[in-house]
Amino acid sequence: MALIELQNVTYHYPYVKSAALQDISCTIEEGKFYGIIGENGGGKTSLCNLLRGLIPHFYQGKLEGKVTIAGTDVMEWDTGKLAAKIGYVFQNPFTQISGIKETVFEEIAMGLENLGVPKKEMVDEVLRVMKLLNIEELMEKNPNALSGGQRQRVAFASILAMNSDILVIDEPTSQLDPQGTQDVFEIIQMLKASGKTIILVEHKIDLIARYCDEVIVMQGGRIVKQGPTAEVLSSPELPELGAVAPQVSQFGHAMAAAGMPLDHIPITIEEAIELIQKQKGAAK
């Protein structure tokens, strides 16, 4: 079922002549995990703002085309209800801290306070999310005194606690180490398994390859390629579209160019190993 539908959407930020998004058409289906990739300045964050309804509610500008969220035109949505429906974690972890709470525990509970969740439920939910993100040791700390990575986890936890149906996540791992990044992806995978719809902007292409159902490639404010992850990431034209291809798919193309093509172009290491072993077995 289509949750968000964009039809021929073009958007200009206020006082800017060139369009940030041009002729965007795509459908976000319920329960799927979408990865958005592409060059810097390609329109990924603007697309997130559009999917989250910040365009046109927060950023005024000029919007053409049709945007529907859960069957209702985006203009008809109340911004508060939209916030409860679609969770949004954005790039900069330093501005996602409210600045009015004295402990991380209270910071994470803030969204639930706004939603009017009863106190006992609120406490249980905050504890659950903190455990999920492994940030229980930060519970009593001042959120304004955390490092970038810690703030990023707290910001993520604050949105997760609100239990939205759809999550738009813009580079949630930019401040995290490899283990932290892996943990976040596993949590996102778990959210997907629980039926949530996830839209993720991320440069770590190997993780996109491993976890996403579909990939959208953005360049110059346009969607230049979209489809199932394996189909998009195995495409040889990916570098020309300003996106980085997974190393194993580059390897697959190189093998084909060397006259030793694999069964198909792999996008994850496990898949590549399997294909090579299969090819070696066939050669024997």
């Binding site: 409860a84 969770g87 409210s98 009017g116």
Partner: peptide
């Protein structure tokens, strides 16, 4: 935007 993401403006 961060406050909006926390449903600050919801009418509840």
């Amino acid at each position: 935007i961060a406050m909006d993401a926390r449903a600050f403006s919801i009418d509840t």
